[in-house]
């Protein structure tokens, strides 16, 4: 259980944006992330849009080559681009994208969509293909007659199930879920999440679950990490995290969530008025990147970038307010 399966060490991914004056300007989409994900875990990675969550996911998948730092998967350095990765590694790492409308080919039917990974990885003999596809559809609780449907004729929830089936086709051990339910309604979200958790148990999968929904993470993640402007600012076990949120940004996020009952209202930290917006990652403020919006900033915050410290056992936070103790 505590065996690390994936380690990110000081992972960086910058993108070049040209600016006038001939000087090279970079967007630091992911800027020094350290993250360890253990075998069998559901790691929740939470952040606003523009915080670098998806860039991190794509770097792990090999869609982007990291600018710096290392990605270690099963004790093997995989910080290279996709082209240099072995086929067996690609089989072991899979991803489910946010929008099933655009991640499934509209001119293929479900059979063709699910066939491709099986063929690429040589996982089924020609005669067995249909049977294997029916099995896959059944693991995501879709009936076999979906085989010849096209994605356009299906609802958003069913499409996302197909995306999940496609990711599971290669029998991976590590799956990245990049906001798999944020485009869906809550009733369908609940169904898909339940299925994902069941599959995780049955197939002993490890999930990196990327989302902006903290209340969802409260219910399914084992650990939660919060990202802000390319850096992780707080990380802890889920129970600990929600009992004692430390970083001012986390508290702002938590107090912004609209909830449906009074018990939940009581759990929110005292109302932190949310102010300002996430700054452009081209122009990250000096010192702590959050200081422009922080209600508790001091003079130090505008000058020095805080380092990650372990404020309580297993509870990491990157804030000057906790460094003094």
């Amino acid at each position: 259980m505590t065996e690390p399966i994936m380690e990110l060490k000081d992972l960086k991914r910058y993108f070049l944006v040209h600016k006038s004056g001939g000087k090279q300007v970079f967007v630091k989409a992911v800027d020094g992330v350290n993250l360890t994900i253990n075998q069998g875990e559901v790691m929740g990675l939470v952040g606003e849009s523009g915080s670098g969550k998806s860039t991190l996911a794509y770097a792990v998948m090999g869609m982007y080559k990291p600018t710096g730092g290392r990605i270690i998967f099963k004790n093997q350095d995989i910080s290279v681009s996709s082209a240099k990765r072995s086929l067996s590694l690609k089989k072991d790492l899979q991803i489910v994208f946010q929008d099933p409308g655009s991640s499934l080919n509209p001119s293929q039917n479900i059979k063709q969509i699910l066939e491709l990974p099986l063929k690429v990885h040589g996982l089924a003999k020609k005669g067995d293909l249909d049977k294997k596809i029916i099995d896959l559809l059944q693991t995501v609780e879709l009936s076999p007659n979906y085989m010849y449907k096209s994605p356009a004729t299906m609802g958003g929830g069913e499409r996302q199930m197909v995306s999940i089936a496609r990711a599971l086709a290669t029998d991976p051990s590590f799956v990245i879920l990049d906001e798999p339910t944020s485009a869906l309604d809550v009733s369908i979200q609940a169904k898909i999440i339940n299925m994902l958790l069941k599959l995780q148990q049955a197939k002993r999968l490890t999930y990196l679950f990327i989302t902006h929904d903290l209340s969802l993470m409260r219910n399914i993640a084992t650990r939660v990490a919060i990202m802000y402007l390319g850096k992780v600012c707080e990380m802890a076990d889920t129970v600990q995290f929600f009992k004692n949120p430390m970083h001012p940004y986390t508290r702002m996020l938590l107090s912004s969530i609209p909830v449906v009952s009074e018990e939940e209202e009581a759990l929110k930290p005292q109302k932190v008025v949310s102010t300002g917006e996430i700054p452009s990652p081209v122009d990250v403020p000096p010192g702590c990147s959050f200081h422009l919006r922080c209600p508790e900033k001091t003079g130090l915050c505008t000058k020095a970038d805080p380092v990650m410290i372990e404020a309580a056992s297993g509870h990491f936070v990157r804030c000057h307010a906790y460094a003094k103790m």
């Binding site: 809550v186 898909i192 219910n219 009952s261």
Partner: peptide
């Protein structure tokens, strides 16, 4: 009732089953 159950709660307690079927 189904909608309310489906909303993930900050109090935890896992996920509900959702509502069967679709619009």
């Amino acid at each position: 009732l189904g909608l309310l159950e489906s909303v993930p709660k900050l109090t935890g307690g896992g996920m509900a089953e959702g509502i069967y079927g679709q619009i």
